[in-house]
């Protein structure tokens, strides 16, 4: 099993999916993010770690322009998705967000049925031509999110009636139903119990096959478990970025080492 995985890893193509250069974010007078340069690879789980308020969520929200909804936020620098600047004036953030999906910290299913939750994205983006295709997309998304077996008999029941872990997987199913290319996850397990966390982590690892996954996490163990690459943020700066193994075993920056060993944060 493990051997097969190594073989799999060997044939992976690691193209650069998102390339960020000199990204600065200001919230009013506050300089929240300074000069961040990151390359996010395709078919890779990239973890952003760092103490609270270090800018990791801010940077994540830059990647699908969710910061646009914050009136005082100002983003500068370039972020290229497949070589195209997502902050170009011609880019419609709505279209961008269909390509770069997002899962939030707190499970936030719509107060609609499980089916409608997953079908919402494909419906508004016109991804399916008829009901049968939509059913297929819903089923495939729920299967990918490892939720299908638990909910297949009650698709018309409310999504808010599920348990916390199920709700979060429903949100993941909803995000992947629009077949995005990048999936952003903002502390997806912080509201979940250990069992649900384990399920979601397993899921993240599987999702890597189809998407590039970027995950913000407070838990260093989680970053070590699920990610291939890790970026450490501190006080709005990107301190260190590299292979997860390297970051955790031999960090090059003293701040990273202090954080990992629990001295700052």
């Amino acid at each position: 099993m493990n051997d097969m995985r190594i073989v799999e890893r060997a044939v992976e193509t690691r193209n650069i999916k998102i390339s960020a250069r000199g990204v600065q974010v200001h919230y009013g007078d506050k300089h929240a993010l300074r000069d961040v340069d990151v390359d996010i690879l395709d078919n890779t789980v990239t973890a952003f770690i760092g103490p609270s308020g270090c800018g990791k969520s801010t940077f994540l929200r830059c990647l699908n322009r969710m910061n646009d909804t914050v009136a005082v936020a100002k983003v500068s620098g370039t972020i290229l998705l497949d070589g195209e600047d997502i902050y170009d004036r011609r880019v419609d953030p709505v279209q961008l967000r269909a390509k770069v999906g997002m899962v939030f910290q707190k499970p936030n299913p719509f107060p609609k049925s499980i089916y409608d939750n997953v079908a919402y994205g494909p419906r508004i983006h016109g991804l399916t031509r008829n009901k049968a295709e939509l059913d297929e997309v819903v089923e495939a998304s729920l299967r990918k999110a490892a939720l299908w077996n638990e909910v297949k008999d009650r698709l018309q029941e409310g999504g808010t009636g599920l348990s916390g872990g199920q709700q979060q997987r429903l949100c993941i199913a909803r995000a992947i139903a629009t077949s995005p290319e990048v999936l952003l996850m903002d502390e997806p397990c912080s509201a979940l119990d250990p069992i649900a966390t384990a399920q979601v982590e397993e899921l993240i690892d599987e999702l890597r096959a189809s998407f590039s996954v970027v995950i913000v996490t407070h838990s260093m163990q989680q970053a070590a478990r699920v990610s291939q690459r890790t970026a450490f943020f501190h006080l709005g700066n990107l301190v260190e970025y590299g292979e997860t193994g390297a970051i955790f075993t031999k960090p090059s920056d003293p701040r990273t080492e202090s954080y990992i060993t629990g001295r700052i944060g």
Binding site: R97, A98, M102, Y120
Partner: peptide
Amino acid sequence: PPSIRDAALGIGASKMQTVFH
């Protein structure tokens, strides 16, 4: 709750779709 707006915007609903749906 703002999380509902985030959820809708996050999967690419436009502002108006978010409001009306």
